[in-house]
Amino acid sequence: MAEQDEDSLIGYDPLAWMHRSDFNQDSQKTEVGESEADSSIKFVSSTEEASNLEMDLDQAPDDVSELSSSEGEGAVLVLEPVQNIQNVAILHQRLTQMLGNFDVIDIDASNVTMIDTATLQLLLILKQTAIGLQKSISIDFPSDKFIAAAELLGIAEMLEVDQAASGFF
């Protein structure tokens, strides 16, 4: 929060973020689709490997052309309907990029019809990494299938999907 003029009775300005993040522009959208996966992607082969994925920001790919060039803004990532071991690597790559460039990341999970443990574990690691970096990750509008899978794995609370599922993030 930014401080106001000395004469003002407003000590700290709670709306300052609206200027900082360019309030009038929509957050950047990044679609993660199978079409974006190329043959050079090295897929992880098991959920154990996925759980060992680390959010090493130094490993973030340099090519981030679709993301905003101004660091610190929020970003939105829309999950594809099917999230499984075959596309977890590209998702990992995207999220690592976004975490390096943005303070606030919203993951729109409303379209998810199938999600495996590898992807859920990746999201959990991302969320924990973000907390350590004093950044914010939210799962927005999780579908019923997303919620059911998160609950089955026992990480619904950690992913805060209960709160998100209330319809208000």
């Binding site: 009775l9 407003i10 300005d13 709670p14 709306l15 973020w17 609206m18 309030f23 929509d26 957050s27 959208k29 929020g74 939105v76 919203d106 729109d108 409303s110 939210s138 927005d140 509008f141 208000f168 993030f169």
Partner: peptide, 21 residues
């Protein structure tokens, strides 16, 4: 009042999320 200003900040964050979603 000041706390209403604080609340407005939170509200705007929420509205932005809805606009995006």
């Amino acid at each position: 009042d000041y706390l209403a200003l604080q609340g407005l900040s939170h509200l705007m964050g929420t509205i932005k999320k809805f606009e995006s979603a």
